[in-house]
Amino acid sequence: MSADAGRESLMEPLILIVDDDEALRRSTQFLLASVGLEARSFASAAAFLDAFPDGDPGRPGCLLLDVRMPGMSGLELQRVLVERGFAPPIIVVTGHGDVPMAVAALKAGAHDFVEKPFKEQHLLDTIEAAIRLSRERMTQGAARRGVRERLDRLAKREREVLDRVLAGKANKVIAYELDLSIKTIEVYRASLMAKMAAGSVAELAQMVALLGRDKGKP
C-alpha cells in the first residue's frame, strides 16, 4: 500500500475547476491544456460534490474555485470540502480587488487566491505550487499510513519498548521498568526496529514524529 501511495503522488496532476461561467471554465481549461495540464470543470458546487462524494480525486492537483456563484457559493463549498478532509489545495478565484473575500477564503483554509481576470503566469505558478504541495501531501500521507501500519503490527511488549526507546531510555532502565532481562529487551528492540524498517533510533523518532504531526493537525 505504501508503494501505491508513492505511485499516486507521481501520477499526472488533475486540475479541478468550479465556475458558473461556461466561457471562463472552458478558457481556463484551454489555458491549462496549452501547458499540458489536464483539467475537469464543474458548473456548480453541487455538480462537483456529485462527482466527488468523498472529496478525493485520488490524483495530485488542485481545485480552482470561483467564490461568487449562484446556489452554494465557493466559500461554502470550501467549508464542506475541508470538513471532509479534501486533500487537494484549494485556490479561490475572486473578483478583481475583492480583498475581504480572499482573506475570508484563506482563513477558512484555502491554499491561495487568484484575481480574475488572471495574470496567466501568476495563475500557472500558483497552480504549480499547489500541485507540488499536493504531491508532498500525498507522499507524506503515504509515509504516515506506512508508519501507522507498521506500528499497528508491533506486539504489545514491542510497543512498550518502542515508547521507552523513543523516550531516550537505556536498555538497562527499560529492563528494570518492565521487569525483564536486558537480553530480552535487546531481542524486542531488534525485532521492532526490523518491523518498523528503521535503521536507527533517530530514524524511528522521525517516523513517529510524522505521526505525531499528523495527529497534531486538525
Binding site: D21, A23, L24, R26, S27, T28, F30, L31, L32, A33, S34, R68, G95, H96, K116, P117, F118, E120
Partner: peptide, 18 residues
C-alpha cells in the same frame, strides 16, 4: 463589473493559452 470581467477573463485565458 463582474459581468464584464467574465468575458474579459475568458479572452485573457484564451490569448495566453494560444
Amino acid at each position: 463589473a463582474h459581468e464584464l470581467n467574465q468575458p474579459l477573463a475568458a479572452i485573457g485565458n484564451y490569448a495566453a493559452g494560444l
